[in-house]
Write a protein that binds this DNA or RNA. Sequence first.
DNA 1: TCCAGTTGTGTTATGCTATAACGTATGGCA
DNA 2: TGCCATACGTTATAGCATAACACAACTGGA
Lengths: 136, 136
Amino acid sequence: MTALSHPDLTRNQALVLKALDSAEGPLGAYAILDALRDKGFRAPLQVYRALDKLLEFGLVHRLESINAFVACAHPECHAHSTIAFAICEKCGKVSEFGDKEVEGRLESWARAHNFKASKTTIEIRGRCEKCAEEAA
Amino acid sequence: MTALSHPDLTRNQALVLKALDSAEGPLGAYAILDALRDKGFRAPLQVYRALDKLLEFGLVHRLESINAFVACAHPECHAHSTIAFAICEKCGKVSEFGDKEVEGRLESWARAHNFKASKTTIEIRGRCEKCAEEAA
DNA sequence: TCCAGTTGTGTTATGCTATAACGTATGGCA
DNA sequence: TGCCATACGTTATAGCATAACACAACTGGA
Ligand SMILES: [Zn+2]
Ligand SMILES: [Zn+2]
Ligand SMILES: [Zn+2]
Ligand SMILES: [Zn+2]
């Protein structure tokens, strides 16, 4: 789905990114581990270390509210600004979007309170369009 | 700090709320357990079950990004609207605030994409005013 | 009164998420 | 060559959350 190329990804990092990228939805670290056992992965740390780097590169996002990871849908693009995620609790579909207005409001709260922000999380959980239709 | 009274809190629920309310910052479930061992608490489930109810009553918030819980700073007040949290990673101080503009923007994204939101998380991690001064 | 349903509780065991601590291997560079 | 930084592999452990079972207390109606 996304551009899988990046300067100097190591083998493990590339494998983890590929696993995330070819998954339908977000994956937990242990699900990634299971998906990569036949590539030689044995221990959670192999996954977490790769994820740390991929997060640093901005190629992967961590979804705090569900302890899972997704490949970035728009790499190269949203650089390091604040991103919001809509997560379907039924099918796992994740949509990322940015909103300058929201970002600005949160930034001004921080400025007004002398709060030095380092990372902002915005996650909406619910039902995606398709799954909402099916609901009772 | 906050109003500790609520219709029909059970003993365990009241104890957990009191523990959170008298803590300096957010507490993990196991920290609450440890704090309540001398009140007879023995197992994590005693804590989690009380927390479930307190969350339902809106007396406690869960901070998804740090797997911890805080007593609501404004019970009775912000009812069930979306709340944002600023969490100091140094001293643990948590500030809650609501922003109708932010809430509205996220709601309109959801409406535009036919996404049926059930719970929205907004958490800003960083340094509070006091701790930012001390930083190198 | 008795029964059934609901809610809270206690306990044991288990599962899922993440990191500590150790040693090894590799590549760039003075 | 010696040094440093980075990645890797493995074992063990820490931290967070729930499943499953059993029992007690209350509630409302037959
Ligand atoms: Zn992205
Ligand atoms: Zn869906
Ligand atoms: Zn609150
Ligand atoms: Zn602070």
